[in-house]
Simulated assay, not measured.
Amino acid sequence: MNTETTPAPDFGLSLDQCWVLLDTEVVGRIALIIDGHPEIFPVNFVLDRRSIVFRTAGGSKLWAAMTAKPVAFEIDGYDSHEQAAWSVVARGEVQLIESQEEKEAVDARLLEPWQPGDKDFYVRLAPKALTGRRFKVIKPDLWSTRLADPRRASFE
């Protein structure tokens, strides 16, 4: 059997594994429906009490928090040592954090905006669904794989 063309096994991640991976990252993408269209925004975030928290200015992300529309949040990565890719997706509704005590607790986790400007609104996503997967990647064809492909470092 030719292992180069056989699909790599896909391993579902447990809830705990998903939370561990979320805790290793600082930037994710939040997906919102705005005016009937999907929009995706990068956000830096922290975990607080089994929820994902980010800060924002007024605008689309804040609007989503105030209208209680469903959102998705995603992170992914590649482990060159294990030659495996992974992805974690959280789904649910976001809410505005209004309590100063909760804001201070999040600030203590070092949630500092990356983009300049006022990011005075704190938004919390307490996932109703949290899923993840990990899979081995196939060996790249070094002649036709882009130089920026992180798999190249594993096999060169």
Rank of each mutant, 00 (worst) to 15 (best):
P70S: 13
D23N: 15
R109K: 09
K139T: 10
F54W: 03
A68K: 10
L32W: 02
R49V: 05
T6N: 05
K136V: 09
N2T: 14
E104N: 08
Q83K: 05
L62N: 02
D35R: 12
H37K: 14
Q115F: 12
L15T: 10
K139N: 08
F41V: 15
R50C: 05
T131N: 13
I75S: 01
T56K: 01
L125I: 02
E104S: 12
V71L: 08
L142A: 04
W143I: 13
V123T: 00
E82L: 07
Q95I: 10
K139I: 09
W114K: 09
F121M: 06
F121A: 02
P140N: 07
P7I: 07
G117A: 12
R151K: 08
E101P: 07
G77C: 09
E93A: 04
F155V: 13
T6W: 08
L62F: 06
G117L: 15
A148E: 15
R109T: 13
A57M: 12
D10Q: 10
F121I: 11
A65V: 08
L21C: 11
P140L: 10
V53F: 01
V20E: 08
Y122M: 07
A105T: 03
A64N: 02
S60N: 06
P116Q: 13
E74C: 02
Y122F: 11
G36I: 07
F155M: 07
S144Y: 09
W63H: 12
S60W: 09
T5N: 07
E98F: 08
D76F: 08
G77Q: 13
V137W: 11
R91I: 15
C18S: 07
V71K: 03
A64W: 02
